[in-house]
Amino acid sequence: MTLLELRTFWGNRPLIGAAVGALIQDETGRVLLQRRGDDGLWGEPGGALEPGEDFLTGARRELMEETGLVCPDLALMPLPDGLQSGPELFHRYPNGHEIYIVGMRARGTLPASALDHARPDDSGETLELRWFPLDSLPPLSNNANRQSLSVLRAQAGLPPLPLLPYPPAPPAGNHLMDLRRLVGSRPLFAPGANVLVTDGQNRLLLLRHGGTGKWTVPGGSLEPGESFEECARRELFEETELNAERLEPLEMFCGPQYRFTYPHGDTVDNVSVLYRAHGVTGTLTPQEGEVLEVGWFGVHELPEDRELSGTLIQDNLKVWTGGQSA
Score class of each variant (00 low, 15 high):
Glu53Thr: 05
Gly68Thr: 06
Pro94Ser: 01
Glu53Ile: 08
Phe189Leu: 03
Glu229Thr: 13
Leu32Glu: 03
Gln287Tyr: 15
Glu27Asn: 08
Val102Ala: 09
Leu89Asp: 07
Leu74Cys: 04
Thr126Asn: 11
Leu247Trp: 15
Ala75Gly: 07
Asn202Phe: 15
Glu251Gln: 14
Glu62Gly: 01
Leu204Ala: 09
Ile99Tyr: 08
Pro263Trp: 07
Arg306Asp: 15
Thr281His: 14
Gly68Tyr: 02
Leu49Gln: 12
Leu158Glu: 01
Val31Asp: 01
Asp269Val: 05
Arg92Asn: 13
Gln314Lys: 14
Leu79Asp: 08
Val271Ile: 12
Asp121Glu: 03
Ser325Leu: 13
Val70Trp: 12
Ala156Cys: 01
Tyr93Gln: 10
Arg107Ile: 06
Pro51Val: 05
Thr216Leu: 08
Glu293Ala: 15
Phe90Met: 12
Ser272Trp: 12
Gly11Asp: 02
Gly46Leu: 08
Thr109Gln: 12
Gly323Thr: 02
Gln84Gly: 13
Leu127Ile: 01
Cys254Asn: 09
Ala114Thr: 12
Thr311Ala: 13
Arg306His: 15
Phe9Glu: 05
Leu3Ile: 15
Asn316Phe: 15
Gly192His: 15
Thr321Trp: 02
Leu176Tyr: 14
Met1Arg: 11
Gly213Glu: 00
Thr321Ser: 12
Leu204Asp: 05
Pro111Gly: 05
Leu127Ser: 04
Trp10Ile: 05
Arg146Ser: 00
Gly255His: 06
Ala144Val: 09
Val294Asn: 14
Arg276Phe: 06
Leu3Trp: 15
Ala154Ile: 00
Ala19Lys: 06
Arg259Thr: 10
Gly219Phe: 10
Ala169Leu: 04
Phe228Ser: 00
Pro160Tyr: 01
Leu15Val: 09
Gly21Thr: 11
Gly17Ala: 11
Arg146Tyr: 03
Asp81Ala: 07
Thr198Pro: 07
Gly82Asp: 09
Cys231Ile: 07
Leu312Cys: 08
His264Phe: 04
Gly295Leu: 07
Glu290Tyr: 13
Pro159Phe: 00
Lys214Met: 02
Asp54Ser: 09
Glu251Gly: 08
Arg105Val: 02
Thr216Pro: 03
Ser141Tyr: 09
Pro165Gln: 07
Thr267Leu: 10
Pro187Lys: 10
Gly210Ser: 15
Thr57Ser: 14
Leu33Met: 12
Glu53Cys: 07
Glu241Cys: 12
Gln25His: 08
Gln324Lys: 03
Ala59Phe: 08
Ser227Thr: 13
Trp131Lys: 06
Ala154Gly: 00
Asp121Asn: 07
Pro224Ser: 13
Pro139Phe: 07
Leu188Val: 04
Cys254Thr: 01
Thr67Arg: 10
Asp39Ser: 14
Phe260Glu: 14
Leu15Arg: 08
Leu63Ser: 00
Gly37Met: 01
Pro263Ala: 03
Gly43Asp: 03
Pro14Glu: 11
Thr311Val: 14
Ser272Ile: 15
Asp39Trp: 12
Glu235Ala: 02
Glu27Gln: 11
Ser148Asp: 03
Gly310Ala: 04
Ala154Leu: 00
Asn12Glu: 15
Arg146Val: 00
Arg61His: 05
Gly184Asp: 06
Arg130Asp: 03
Tyr100Ala: 02
Asp178Gly: 01
